[in-house]
Simulated scan of single mutants.
Amino acid sequence: YDASELGLLQAGFNRMVEGLRERERIREAFGTYVDRDVAEHILEEGGMEGEEVEVTLMFLDVRDFTGFAERAPAREVVATLNRMFEIAVPVIRDHGGHVDKFVGDGLLAVFGAPRPAEDHAEQAMKAAIEMCARIKKELAGEFEIGIGINSGTVVAGSIGGAGRLEFSVIGDAVNVAARIEAATRETGDTILLSEETKNLLEGTYELKPRTDVELKGKQGKATLYTPDT
């Protein structure tokens, strides 16, 4: 190589290194605002068109949050919620799920999308049990939570418009998970799951039935289940 060729090689190498650094900076910044698994998927695949997938959904919500917010200063409310999310989000991620969205004082987590997982129901159940134990221990007496779990078919993909997109899941299975979480207030259980999720777990957990539970917006009554822990 002569000096000019070496210079071109060096310049090309420098551009490659800078490109890798820039990609990593984007990955780090993106991961702060978007779940890292979703961020990785978007960076690798360039987005995700809508497709039907089988998943397990988890709704988590704080019980009597309105009362808690009225009693405590605003800064304390936000700080306590963030402490809960700092427990919940890593647990969800460690068990293969991702947070689809934060909804006020709660969140929706998805197991089985964007990356498929055959054991999505098992992942969700393990996450829920660990999450409850840790929140009870680390936030004892500050507030209680309810968790609703449901499995089914959803449409998963990049949703939005006008230059703003987010990965999300839509479908009746999502609504049912939210209704199941709301039912924890009636039954007094911390975790409730649907018949569909129970069937996927195939007897790996001792579950107690909760019969004749009304789910808002649904006809008839449902049988739900809570882990015997």
Rank of each mutant, 00 (worst) to 15 (best):
E76I: 06
G19A: 09
K198Y: 12
A121R: 05
A124I: 13
T56H: 01
I26G: 07
G96Y: 03
E45G: 12
L215I: 06
D2W: 05
G203E: 09
G188L: 07
Y205C: 12
V91Y: 00
V55Y: 04
L139C: 09
G160A: 02
F30H: 00
T187N: 03
D94F: 02
E144P: 02
I149V: 05
L192P: 00
K221L: 09
K208C: 05
T32I: 13
V78N: 00
T32M: 15
R71D: 07
L81H: 08
E181F: 02
D37W: 05
L108M: 15
P73W: 03
H120V: 05
A29C: 08
R134E: 12
K101P: 05
M84N: 08
I147K: 06
S151Y: 03
T32V: 12
R27T: 03
E144Q: 08
T190H: 07
L81F: 07
G220N: 07
I135G: 06
G171L: 06
Y205P: 12
F68M: 12
E76H: 02
R21T: 01
F68G: 10
H98F: 08
M48H: 07
G161E: 06
R23L: 00
C132A: 15
E45D: 13
A162F: 07
R185S: 04
P116Q: 11
E86N: 15
L20I: 06
E70V: 11
A121S: 11
D94P: 01
